[in-house]
Design a protein around this nucleic acid. Sequence first.
DNA 1: TCTTTATACGGAACGGTGTTCCGTATGTCA
DNA 2: TGACATACGGAACACCGTTCCGTATAAAGA
Lengths: 195, 195
Amino acid sequence: MRADAQRNMDALLEAAMAVFATSGVDAPVREIAAKAGVGLGTVYRHFPQRSDLIAAVFRHEIDACADAAPVLAVEHEPGEALARWTLRYVDFVAAKRGLAPALHSGDPAFDTLRAYFEQRLRPALQALLESAAAAGEVRTDVDADDILGAVASLSMHAFDRGPKHARRMVSLFVDGMRYGLSPHPKSKRAVRRKT
Amino acid sequence: MRADAQRNMDALLEAAMAVFATSGVDAPVREIAAKAGVGLGTVYRHFPQRSDLIAAVFRHEIDACADAAPVLAVEHEPGEALARWTLRYVDFVAAKRGLAPALHSGDPAFDTLRAYFEQRLRPALQALLESAAAAGEVRTDVDADDILGAVASLSMHAFDRGPKHARRMVSLFVDGMRYGLSPHPKSKRAVRRKT
DNA sequence: TCTTTATACGGAACGGTGTTCCGTATGTCA
DNA sequence: TGACATACGGAACACCGTTCCGTATAAAGA
């Protein structure tokens, strides 16, 4: 791949991410091209359809969210890492709330995306979940898909009442996974009731 | 109101309903105008914005759904009427699935619509619900808003797996409301356990 | 019945969108 | 250093929602 092509590709992705965040996913392609300092033709060379650009940005952010998991796993105790990643995931879902319609619109460009979403996020979360479970910091009757689905629909709705509310509802849910287990990582007093 | 104006208005509503059902709510205004045998200017005389036309069709179908309630109430036993209306409501929600994004889009033309939706459907359902409750055919700890909300979100999701699945899930929900009560309207054997 | 006039009609025109096309510029490799 | 495959920019196209205005017509008074 030619150097300038690669450079423009990166510039486009960055510009698109910024513009989508500001003006929503309905922002004109011309605006993104301008922000990236690139001609219209160049946009369509790299992303034949408008939806391909959206999908690329989306994929990019899925990666960022998934990649946050191992980092958090190193920086925090298992239970805390899980809790923090979940809130990170809330932010991801919130940012992409405007895409829900597109996802269900039947555009084939987004079919791949759903699969990528699961394939990438599930293992990331599963690792955190298994560590936390092994450390006895969360219950064992919840799996990664449960969390991905529940938290997504939870924050989707709850965001209508503001980001604070969404994070609070999700925190509640996460605390539910800790129910009956040691309340703080440091104090290992076994409070556990109800397997 | 002039006679031709009324005629064109009706033709437009009918054409819009048909076109939206076929091509979705994103269908071009020109297509609707053509189907109604009417000029573009006429469309915008009656519906200053595209969203006003959508809202009008929506209101029309809310009415149809609400008006079905008293009819069913006369034709069937209270519990059965409630069950049938709920499935009628599923069809309504399913048909309008494409509007969910628009509803949440912040367009002021749709703000009124949400209010109308509740103001019209809640009393219709409430009447069925009270009859059924009075006849001892459903539990009394569920109210109209519970049903409207639950069934809407339930069928919204379930329709991804086909209309059969949606109706099945909702039927399950409705049966839940009958739990512990006489299984068939005719046979009044009191099976009831658990108040 | 015939005027009159307020009202409604049709469709060309406008501004803005996604997408295509092609002449021009440029990175890459022998 | 050429030669050429590749990438670039932006004018042009098709289609969209919306506006505008000259024309047609339904309705009310003579």
